[in-house]
Amino acid sequence: MDRAEEGRLLRQAQRGDADAFAALYREHVQVIYRYIVHRVGDHHLAEDLTADVFTKALQGLDRYREQGKPLVAWLYRIARARVIDHYRRTSRRPVESDVEAEPLPFDADLDTPMVRREAARVLRAAIAELTEDQQQVVILRFVEGYRVEAIASLMGKQPNAIKALQHRALRTLANRLARAGFDIESVLAGIS
């Protein structure tokens, strides 16, 4: 969906057109869901929080102004706020011990699916431990495939700031996986 089409649907939705809002929802729901599920690591919770995001969006639709940014930037901001709010309510975040609880079995065959699954699990848990901004950069950059300039626009930051966040995030993740005993090269070789 291009920006012009999105703008048209947005204006229709603001006038109360449920079909237009449904079209915008269909366009963006999966990226918002993916963002949330990477942040919280639970599919059911992610579905509920995704529902919250679009409910909030619906409630704030009248006040929304485009301001040169795509709608998804606004949705990401709501999603981020909902995730933070969730952790504030439950007073629970993934703890470091989750990441390091199961060190890599060194005698395991690194090409086995089990090891790759374990590497993925540890990586997800390690992402969940990054700072809010670092998590968002990693998800947008590597999961959604945005380039740095687009991420800067979505997050309302300068590209250099995004590059710095990306660098620190990758360094932290590499350290976490190394501490958990993973040889990333071998894991990558197994899935190439």
């Binding site: 449920a18 869901y33 993925a120 990586l123 590597f142 999961v143 090269e185």
Partner: peptide, 29 residues
Amino acid sequence: SALQIGLLAKRLKQPEMEAGSLDALEMRL
């Protein structure tokens, strides 16, 4: 190490919201 982690993160499985949940949420909205 940074590039390897980037590639690994890119290859994480992309979860999708189930069709039933999508429809239910759309109906609710």
